[in-house]
Design a protein around this nucleic acid. Structure first.
Length: 502
RNA sequence: GUCCCCGUCGUCUAGCCCGGCCUAGGACACCGCCCUUUCACGGCGAUAACACGGGUUCAAAUCCCGUCGGGGACGCCA
């Protein structure tokens, strides 16, 4: 990162509480990049006691769907960050059209009768003819009126000043002082030939009308800002402050896109895999922003307190994922941290849907008992069923009986007879001992001593017998949660398995 | 093609505006060791970066110029 912004976010000298907005267009699920933009806006609003506005930018009837609207709300609700006001752009069309008329009446726009899509493929010519539509911009008003009256469709274009030496300026809250001659800004559309406003028009009209004070959005809008400046001016409105956020990019360096990068860019993918929203938010905040205090694990309250636009940097941030590993390792680690930070009851609550989805009967007591045993062993909630299956199934899935038999270092075959003796002894102990952690601990260690065994070779057969695998939570806690009956039955079954090994 | 933005460990980043405290700090990942009934957690340690080239200066990751590299915008999409 180089050179610091001249006027970071101290741009607005004194300060009515800010009003910011998040304005997604409902053309798909909630994108992680959009989620981050939303979060940063929310943080800015809440840090400054401002207002958070949610506005659906749905002026593209061709591409907007209700399903998408639902999915975006679903994503936002999951994040758990609230907003104060809500608008739908499609319900404000009168406002947009009136604004377009005003701009046209002021002579700041012209009708463009070029058929839609006419210029889709031809490249801009060398002298910059792409800046405007020749023949349209200079068309006499009489001809324009006549053709319009005759019903010929037209788009309304902004007449960007040419050859006046005018330069547009703004102070970006992240990128600093920005400027561009109007000669380099093309004549952009305000109204489509079907009469619908374009994004540029609708968004600026609404931002002005809703008295948005700060527009915080992706850096891909940086160069659009000059057009927006022109619209605010034509509207006679004071332009808001702008702050552009560095982009979230894929490992290939390009902007994250659903088409190119698949479901890993959808917020719901994270939710479904078992991310905690607070962990996801924590992760996203660290992409392009730093608390500058060497801390990574942060809760929302801390982030809100610490958040400023000065902490936002300018280089694009890579979200690291691969085909095999769809989630950034840091996101996963943060999630594990947040899981461990959760009180047991809350963790149990979060775990339940995942357990149920795996077909387990997740009784609240049971889940609460299991949660502390797996909390350090899972990084995603979605890993819970695999980590805790043996607590919930009636019958253990098949496992390799050889695992019941401990191997000494360097050996390839163990001693089945010894394993059998361990299990027999364990069965007797479990049948006779109080079923609590300390009693079990004491009794089983005594049994080990009697067999002349250390803890390892004593506990492995028991663990595998009751869990069906070698890697599992601590033994005594596990036995207690499982209960005496289940343990005895599984040990007996394990003995049969060894016997059947021959 | 034109314009704009960016460039510190593999990744996220601190440091850059106000040059010296930077033999560049933290985190994740990876590797090793310790703890330990397994796995995990935890603890300790190791490897690893200022894109390149000039300039200014006693001194540059920090200032200036250039090069290269990456990204973005240029739509009757948002």
């Amino acid at each position: 990162m180089k050179a610091i912004a001249t006027m970071p976010d101290s741009v607005s000298p004194v300060s009515a509480p800010p009003r910011v907005r998040f304005a997604p267009s409902p053309t798909g699920f909630l994108h992680v990049g959009s989620a981050r933009t939303f979060i940063f806006n929310w943080l800015f609003a809440r840090h400054n006691q401002g207002t958070m506005v949610l506005r659906l930018d749905d002026t593209d009837v061709e591409r907007n769907t209700d399903a998408s609207v639902q999915s975006i709300f679903e994503g936002l609700r999951w994040l758990g960050l609230n907003w104060d006001e809500e608008y739908k752009q499609s319900e404000r069309l009168d406002l947009h059209r009136a604004a377009a008329e005003t701009i046209f009446a002021r002579g700041l726009a012209y009708r463009d009768f070029t058929p839609a899509h006419a210029g889709d493929d031809n490249q801009s010519s060398a002298q910059g003819a792409w800046l405007f539509n020749p023949g349209m911009r200079e068309m006499p008003r009489e001809e324009s009126d006549r053709r319009a009256a005759a019903g010929e469709p037209f788009a309304l274009r902004y007449r960007v000043p040419r050859g006046e030496g005018r330069v547009l300026h703004f102070a970006d809250g992240v990128y600093g002082a920005q400027s561009r001659p109007t000669d380099e800004v093309e004549d952009f559309a305000l109204l489509r030939s079907d009469g619908m406003p374009t994004y540029h028009l609708a968004s600026c009209v609404d931002d002005a009308d809703l008295r948005i004070s700060h527009i915080i959005r992706g850096q891909d809008h940086l160069t659009n800002t000059y057009k927006h400046l022109l619209i605010f001016e034509a509207l006679g409105a004071q332009a808001p402050q702008f702050a552009h956020l560095p982009l979230l990019v894929a490992p290939d360096g390009t902007k994250l896109s659903k088409r190119k990068h698949g479901p890993v860019v959808s917020v719901t993918t994270y939710r479904d895999a078992g991310f905690l929203p607070q962990a996801f938010v924590n992760f996203l905040c660290l992409l392009g922003w730093s608390p500058k205090n060497d801390r990574d694990f942060l809760v929302l309250d801390e982030i809100r307190t610490l958040f400023t636009l000065e902490g936002v940097n300018r280089a694009n941030a890579v979200v690291n994922f691969t085909e095999e590993d769809p989630f950034d390792a840091k996101a996963v680690w943060l999630n594990a941290e947040h899981i461990r930070a959760l009180p047991v009851e809350e963790l149990a609550h979060c775990l339940t849907p995942f357990l149920e989805q795996a077909g387990f009967h997740a009784a609240p007591d049971k889940v609460a008992a299991v949660a502390p045993l797996i909390r350090e062993r899972i990084k995603l909630l979605g890993e819970a069923p695999a980590a805790a299956d043996f607590f919930f199934v009636d019958k253990l899935p098949g496992y390799d009986p050889a695992e019941l038999i401990p191997l000494k270092k360097g050996e390839t075959t163990g001693d089945p007879a010894l394993a059998l003796r361990v299990l027999e002894s364990a069965r007797q102990v479990l049948a006779a001992t109080d079923f609590d952690h300390d009693s079990l601990d004491k009794a089983l260690r005594e049994a080990a001593t009697q067999l002349g065994l250390k803890a390892g070779p004593m506990f492995q057969p028991i663990r595998v017998a009751v869990c069906g695998r070698k890697n599992a939570p601590p033994l005594f806690e596990t036995l207690v949660v499982l209960g005496r009956e289940v343990c005895l039955a599984r040990i007996a079954e394990a003995e049969e398995r060894i016997a059947s090994l021959g």
